[in-house]
């Protein structure tokens, strides 16, 4: 008996985050940077927490390289759409350009979970979803 497929939880952009997800569709990783003080901002917002300048700032390309600062490994599906992915690793990645102010979350692809560690160097790798959205995932660099 085939079980009914659970729809993948596709991210729902909001006014602040829409440019980020739009860039992901084109496989570009971006984050906001203040046009005045240069501070990186995460998650997306309409004001700079460094100098309080209003506005979206500059959506700036990230190279997609970074370091795993921590991780967890789901050993059972924490969401029903992930039933066929167990075990899967969720990594928290500090991008090289903005390690103090941006922390990206993604799945680590094609790496046995026992080999994941804090300090692992990773490279972004986009995963396309049905409907055109894309998620920033990571692979060991």
């Amino acid at each position: 008996m085939a079980s009914e497929a659970v729809p993948y939880p596709v991210p729902v952009p909001d006014t602040d985050s829409a440019p980020f997800w739009e860039a992901c569709r084109a496989h570009r990783l971006v984050a906001q940077r203040c046009a005045d003080c240069g501070r990186w901002r995460w998650p997306p917002a309409g004001v700079c927490p460094g100098c309080q300048r209003r506005g979206a700032g500059e959506w700036t390309a990230l190279r997609g390289t970074g370091t795993v600062t921590s991780y967890v490994v789901a050993q059972r599906a924490l969401h029903p759409a992930f039933a066929d992915k167990v075990p899967y690793t969720i990594v928290f990645v500090a991008p090289d350009e903005a390690p103090d102010h941006v922390l990206l979350i993604g799945n680590l692809l094609d790496e046995p979970w026992e080999r994941v560690r804090v300090g692992l160097r990773v490279q972004v790798s986009f995963a396309d979803l049905p409907g055109g959205a894309a998620l920033p995932m990571f692979r060991a660099a």
Binding site: P11, D14, H79, I105
Partner: peptide, 11 residues
Amino acid sequence: GQWLIPFGSAH
């Protein structure tokens, strides 16, 4: 949740 749930971080 847009930053967590799509990556199976739902717990």
